[in-house]
Write a protein that binds this DNA or RNA. Structure first.
Lengths: 248, 248
DNA sequence: GCAAAAGTGTTGTGTCTACACCCATGT
DNA sequence: ACATGGGTGTAGACACAACACTTTTGC
């Protein structure tokens, strides 16, 4: 009844692993698609590889899974070397990639995570790390380009039927700021008027009572809101936020 | 710049892995939540463990990842020992679990898949394998109970905004049969009248022109339909199929 | 008073549920 | 004929987009 294709790590028959060759057991890395709205663009945190393979190419931050770590602890630890982990407002698993050809030199599995950073934070970054607008990505190392797109799609879908917006927004914000965040993340304009009504109907939004002082050009002061919860919740199983109807 | 917590599989500094103890590299298994509507119940394929840990307990089918395999090839191969793989109408990745405590004896990662089998097929099963109605599950080994629930949730959500119904339905069916399938999978009644209109509006349904001969009790013969596509497609990013409004 | 920015009211539309009604067949 | 099950028509509920209008501020 025991699977017969085990080689290493079988507690009964202990074989010496053959390093190099056709490695019997894969290495495992964790990666993260860390997204933030910066300057009205949805951006991703990339790291420039210093050595082969893909030397010089941009890639997702991450690294090997350490002994006894969970996947989540691993990616948090690797990210901590790039960004202050306390600034991550959300971290969730995306998928695990296993194509044997995805790494040229070794058999490597990769578990990808989606991480979000609220607007406004600007963590200090190491030299080899930078934000890139997701619409103008360079070619990425390995299969990382596809992973970034998967992360963006996950975010876009969840904006519709969960309160995930809290993870992109600062703790307090005006409705027009929030609308700008949704617009950047979704890639199409989101009407502030209707956005507020949708989020209010679902009980996601709370008025703080404060108001933002208007700019030098005047204008009515904006009311300041916060999200009622800062934990991910599915608010509408069957959701919302359609793109605008295309003009005739 | 290189992650510092690597042990094995670092091509520069080759260290001898320490087997046993705190194993430096995890084992990796693939598991599948295989679902089918049987007798008006959504059911899952389970396998009764023959040896410790959890000897005698029911668990998800699967096994170790073989050298050079992708995760998907691995779970297909393991499932082939239980069910004819040709009968799987859908297979997609769910999540990868990595809690070090999830297996009592070894450090083991598990990647779970969701598999679907169309109504009507009744594959021959080995002695130690059986279908269980998902609403009356026994306690499962490891963390498999939670994985089953995750699989069911994924299915339920996708019934709303994709054409995933094709994977639960036979190739040809009447609307009332299809409604029974959706009802079993979702756990609440789905009106056949409206189900047809929703699926037709989205262009998912095709009339074959044939009709089903009525039963011994008479009745109008049912028109026979098929799904227009048998590949998974997201049909409505922002979807549908609400539970019935609770009666006052 | 006028421009600018925020917020409210209102209308219209698409998509769904609910349910009454009509159709085709067997006995 | 009438019971049984399938199919159609229609009305109402809702949630949303669109957009005109009103409010509040700075200059």
């Amino acid at each position: 009844m025991r699977p017969k294709d085990i080689t290493v790590s079988d507690s009964q028959s202990k074989t010496q692993p053959e390093p190099g060759a056709a490695r019997p057991s894969p290495t495992h890395v964790t990666l993260a698609v860390v997204l933030q709205v910066r300057d009205a663009d949805l951006s991703v945190l990339l790291w420039q590889r210093a050595r082969p393979p893909f030397s010089g190419a941009w890639s997702l931050p991450g690294g090997y899974l350490g002994p006894g770590d969970t996947l989540e602890r691993s990616i948090r630890a690797h990210l901590a070397r790039k960004v202050d982990v306390a600034e991550l407002s959300l971290l969730e698993q995306l998928e695990t990639l296993s194509d044997p050809g995805r790494h040229p030199d070794e058999w490597q599995l990769a578990t990808a995570y989606l991480g979000l950073v609220p607007l406004g934070l600007d963590p200090a970054l190491p030299e080899d790390t930078a934000w890139h607008a997701i619409d103008e990505l360079p070619g990425l190392a390995f299969d990382h380009g596809a992973i970034v797109l998967a992360g963006r799609e996950r975010l876009r879908a969840k904006l519709s039927y969960t309160n995930i917006g809290f993870a992109l927004a600062p703790t307090a914000f005006s409705i027009s700021e929030l609308s700008a965040i949704y617009t950047a993340a979704l890639g199409y304009p989101v009407d502030p008027t209707n956005l507020r009504r949708v989020l209010e109907r679902r009980g996601l939004l709370e008025a703080t009572g404060e108001r933002r002082a208007p700019g030098r050009e005047g204008g009515r002061p904006a009311a300041i809101y916060r999200f009622a919860s800062r934990d991910l919740e599915v608010t509408d199983q069957f959701a919302v936020l359609r793109p605008p109807r295309p003009a005739e």
